[in-house]
């Protein structure tokens, strides 16, 4: 036997075993729970069999009929979409002048906003709650949209500004010479140019807001304003003994960001690496 090629196939085997193990550990428990959402409660609690037998969709029916999961999902969508849109709009408006113009306080402002990225925000829980209440935003949909816009503003800002810094300024200068106004430049030149950066920031912001439990739990109290993560945490009580319904609901709530990620992998990856290494 040819020794080098044997060693090579041995190392290939090692590499693929490592990868397979990593994949299994990463997704195994989740996949098992997703699979269990098609089982009956009796099978789940008896712990017998990896595959559903009998196979049932009752959990999914219950998730909508009993817990009204669609209402929570809709709320979560409103927050994720609204918060993302808000954060991106505000961040674009702020990133452009802070990337292109020099004025007093500019560097301080940029440093402050970037520093906020490094804040463990849970530390701010109590004051955030207090401020939301003082502004009359507590436990309202608009309140949460505004709050998430603010939360995701620093991240979007950093991604957009570093992208803008890497762009040449020719187009804007040409437009300025043509006499275009400030906001026309932002709207007609900057936004189209920033599309890749906007897309990455959008996907990341969307997923982060979609998955938020801490602030949704802190800042809302009525059912009509709560998001799917809270519903998840409360499933066991909500459903009482309908464990299949809980697992079905969890599966659906997990699937949304997974699908977004799989569909927009490139943007997510670009966004995360841009936001972190730049």
């Amino acid at each position: 036997m040819n020794l080098p090629s044997f060693r090579q196939s041995l190392s290939t085997l090692a590499i693929y075993s490592t990868l397979a193990l990593a994949a299994l550990v990463a997704l195994g428990p989740t996949a098992w729970v997703m699979l269990s959402s098609f089982k009956t409660a009796r099978q789940i609690f008896s712990g017998s069999g990896l595959l559903p037998s009998p196979f049932t969709l009752q959990g999914y029916v219950d998730a909508f009929a009993q817990v009204r999961l669609h209402e929570y999902l809709l709320n979560t969508l409103v927050y994720a979409a609204g918060g993302t849109l808000g954060a991106l709009t505000v961040a674009t408006l702020a990133a452009y002048p802070l990337a292109r113009y020099r004025f007093a306080g500019r560097n301080t402002l940029v440093a402050l906003i970037s520093l906020a990225l490094a804040l463990p925000v849970v530390g701010l829980a109590v004051p955030e709650f207090f401020i939301m209440r003082a502004l009359g935003l507590f436990d309202t949909k608009w309140g949460l949209i505004i709050f998430y816009s603010a939360q995701l503003f620093p991240l979007s800002f950093v991604i957009l500004r570093s992208f803008l810094l890497s762009l040449p300024t020719d187009l804007e200068e040409a437009a300025l010479i043509d006499g275009a106004g400030y906001f026309r430049i932002v709207l007609q030149i900057i936004v189209p140019l920033c599309r890749p950066a906007l897309a990455t920031a959008a996907v990341v912001a969307f997923v982060i807001i979609w998955n938020d439990f801490f602030f949704a739990n802190l800042l809302t109290t009525s059912q009509e304003n709560q998001n799917a993560q809270i519903a998840l945490a409360g499933f066991r009580s909500q459903f009482r003994f309908n464990v299949t319904g809980a697992l079905a609901g969890a599966t659906l709530v997990m699937l949304v960001p997974i699908v977004v990620f799989l569909a927009l992998q490139r943007q997510v990856i670009a966004g995360l690496t841009a936001g972190s290494t730049k």
């Binding site: 990868l19 990593a22 994949a23 990463a26 997704l27 989740t30 729970v33 997923v207 979609w210 998955n211 938020d212 439990f213 993560q229 809270i230 998840l232 945490a233 499933f235 066991r236 809980a246 697992l247 969890a250 709530v253 997990m254 960001p257 997974i258 977004v260 990620f261 799989l262 992998q265 997510v268 990856i269």
Partner: peptide, 14 residues
Amino acid sequence: IFVPWVISGAAFAL
């Protein structure tokens, strides 16, 4: 391997 990163803490807890 990346997928778990987009799953929320609440779902993971369950």
